[in-house]
Computed example of a mutant assay.
Amino acid sequence: MAVLQTTFFSSALGMTSSLTAVLPQDAAPGEKFPVLFLLHGLSDDHTTWLRLTTLELLLQNRRLAVIMPNVHRSFYSDMAHGLKYWTYVSEELPKVARALFPISDRREDTFVAGQSMGGYGAFKLALSKPEQFAAAASLSGALDVRALRVLFTSGEYGDIFGDVNDGAHKDDLFAIAETAARSGEPVPKLYQCCGTEDFLYEDGLRFLRHAGKLGLEVDYEEEPGLHEWGYWNVKLPRILDWLPMEKR
């Protein structure tokens, strides 16, 4: 496996950004790998999945590329008072990654997953861009942005989201899911898990019930666990096995 730390200029952000990539180093001429965009949480960055889990070891026998971007504390949003991280991760990042690395641009080869804030980002990407993603996994996802003020410093919540009480807010995953369900278009395969002692457990159940009412199928698992890397490291093999990768 090759592990690459990459910096590049982001036009969407107007500054240099970074990503970590893990991928097989023996690509055949013309080979394009399936790709998993793996998203970090609120207090993490693009290196954390690699540093705190067995990700590289688990990828040894898989023909899969993993791209891990850095979005700081943006909640994968075009911030009300800040930078356009949603534009960056949903539009610019895939183009940059495919220009730099031998990864597929086919929907059936493209997946997204993340933990906590990244679990929200994964479902937001998949349900907002269903034509781009075949599957999305949310681990202990912070799925209800209206219930998250406790996670932020004073003023930070408003800088990211603005007024969340302003109708169907653009970052409200419940509204995004409703739009996806009513579109009539194929919805990506969805997986959701959370530890029953996690402070986000009830938020996750609210989204799960909402998805069920909309007719969205979600592969759901829960077991004892907290909001911490020990839990996510245990779930990571399950996520990789669950991805609907074509046999090669």
Score class of each variant (00 low, 15 high):
F8S: 12
T16S: 07
S17V: 10
L19R: 10
L19C: 14
A21R: 07
V22L: 14
L23P: 05
E31C: 06
L36V: 03
L38H: 06
L42F: 05
T47R: 12
R51D: 10
L55S: 02
L58W: 02
L59T: 06
L59E: 03
I67T: 02
M68W: 00
V71I: 11
S74R: 08
S74A: 07
Y76R: 02
S77Q: 06
K84P: 07
Y88G: 01
S90A: 14
E92I: 01
L93G: 08
I103L: 04
D105N: 12
R107Y: 13
D109Y: 05
F111P: 10
F111N: 12
V112H: 04
A113M: 01
Y120D: 15
F123D: 04
K129Y: 12
F133E: 04
A135S: 11
A135R: 09
A137Q: 07
A147H: 09
L148Y: 05
L148R: 04
L148T: 11
R149S: 15
V150Y: 15
V150T: 09
F152R: 14
V164A: 09
I176V: 09
E178K: 14
T179F: 12
E185I: 03
K189M: 11
Y191I: 03
Y191D: 03
C193M: 09
C194G: 06
E197L: 04
L200G: 01
L205A: 08
F207Q: 02
F207Y: 14
L208Y: 05
R209Y: 05
A211M: 02
L216N: 08
E217A: 13
E221T: 08
P224W: 08
G225Y: 00
G225Q: 01
L226R: 10
H227A: 07
G230W: 14
R238W: 00
I239L: 14
E246Q: 14
R248S: 15
